[in-house]
Every structure is written in structure tokens, then in C-alpha cells.
């Protein structure tokens, strides 16, 4: 099963874990598995419409999934999936 790497600000919602093993043949299934097991993490990954928040990036290995098949990207045993936030802000 693939391993999902949790970034520092979200670990508090995953019992402090930095890595968890997830189930599912594609990235969206792995995310659904994550939010089912750790429901309080959901609002920080998905918006009210169930879409990925704009600052949530997912990397399979070293590749951003937007350059693969997006949330439909296949994942399998031994794959490493990382949630990596984009950080943004500003005075206006």
C-alpha cells in the first residue's frame, strides 16, 4: 500500500504522524481514506464544495500529480505520496 506523507501543519489532525499507509488504487481514493480515518483534517484539504483547496499540492515521488493524471493518478504498493502546501499571503 502507498505511504502518504503529512506536512507539519496537518500532523496534529493525524495523531501527530508524519507518514501513514493509505488504501486505494488512485490518489483521490487515498485522500478519501485519509479523511475518513482522520475527519478533522478534511476541512484543511477540501473546501466546502469538496474541491481541493488551492494551496494543497500532491506529489507522487518527486512529481506533482497535476503533471500526471491529477487525482486519477494511479498509486500502488511502495509509492510515496506527499501533501505539500503552497504558502501564500499578502497585505491586500
Amino acid at each position: 500500500m502507498p505511504t502518504l506523507y503529512i506536512p507539519t501543519p496537518l500532523r496534529v489532525y493525524a495523531d501527530g504522524q508524519s507518514e501513514i499507509v493509505v488504501n486505494g488504487p488512485i490518489v483521490s481514493d487515498a485522500l478519501n481514506d485519509l479523511v475518513t480515518r482522520y475527519p478533522t483534517i478534511k476541512q484543511h484539504i477540501f473546501n466546502e464544495n469538496g474541491e481541493l483547496r488551492p494551496f494543497v499540492n500532491l506529489f507522487k515521488g518527486k512529481e506533482n500529480i497535476v503533471f500526471l493524471q491529477g487525482l486519477e493518478t494511479p498509486i500502488s504498493e511502495g509509492d510515496s505520496l506527499r501533501i505539500i502546501p503552497s504558502i501564500a499571503g499578502g497585505s491586500l
Partner: peptide, 8 residues
């Protein structure tokens, strides 16, 4: 765009 947990 804020992350939870982080101090800003």
C-alpha cells in the same frame, strides 16, 4: 491561504 497550527 493560511495553514492550521502555524504561527503567522
Amino acid at each position: 491561504w493560511a495553514q492550521p497550527f502555524f504561527s503567522y
